[in-house]
């Protein structure tokens, strides 16, 4: 029995059924299929909710091992473990004992820990962009020169000091944004959609198995 359950055809069949249940109701109105799709969507929510526990378990395994080994920077792992445990317990939805998202400890960690840290990480993108731009904006060949010129034009289009001194920067920037940028964007989007359709066909035919046990039978 266990060998039957481990056959690769089972996940393939489940994938095909799940795919068809999502695609058919979008185009064709068949109440039975619509209802089934809605039910399956609820199952998905349940599966995802249970999968949530897998993340912290992996986290505990990785950082627990790091603390145990006392390797380089092991104390950072202590911080991760402590924050995970405290946040998980404080955020448990048991309002009767004062736990949940309104809990003072949870609120404090969220407001003074997570929010500023996320904001900082988002903010440092500016520095990464600067260092990347320094390396990328070099006129090594025709293509790189085109990128350099277009990039500079867009910088000037977005900086009021330039558009205020010469309105032409606005017209040039807008043209680059609306014409070559839009054309490229649409080409990539259409190509990606076609690629996704081909992937879907391969999956529906059961020949795309890379995401299943490394494609093995």
């Amino acid at each position: 029995m266990s060998n039957v359950l481990r056959r690769i055809e089972i996940p393939i069949i489940l994938t095909i059924i799940a795919t068809l249940l999502q695609v058919i109701p979008y185009y064709i109105n068949i109440p039975v299929i619509n209802d089934t799709a809605n039910t399956v969507n609820l199952w998905v929510l349940l599966v995802v909710a249970w999968a949530t526990f897998i993340g912290p378990l992996s986290l505990m395994q990785v950082h627990g091992k790091a603390v145990q080994k006392r390797g380089k920077g092991w104390y950072f792992s202590v911080v991760v473990l402590a924050a995970t445990i405290i946040m998980s317990i404080a955020g448990l939805p048991i309002a009767e004992v004062g736990l949940g998202t309104t809990n003072a400890v949870y609120q404090w960690l969220f407001t003074y820990g997570q929010t500023p840290l996320s904001g900082t990480m988002y903010g440092i993108i500016a520095f990464f962009i600067t260092s990347a731009a320094y390396r990328a904006f070099r006129a090594k060949n025709i293509e790189a020169t085109l990128v350099l010129v277009a990039g500079l034009a867009m910088v000037m289009y977005n900086a009021p000091v330039f558009t205020a001194s010469w309105p032409g920067f606005r017209i040039i920037g807008q043209w680059i944004y609306d014409v070559p940028n839009m054309a490229t964007n649409r080409a990539v989007t259409i190509g990606a959609a076609l690629g996704a359709i081909a992937l879907a066909v391969r999956t529906l035919m059961g020949i795309e198995r890379g995401y299943l046990r490394g494609g093995s039978d």
Binding site: V188, T189, A192, L194, G195, A196, A198, R202, E208
Partner: peptide, 10 residues
Amino acid sequence: IGEEIYAAGA
């Protein structure tokens, strides 16, 4: 770029 990632597996 774009569709090339879907082609990669194949």
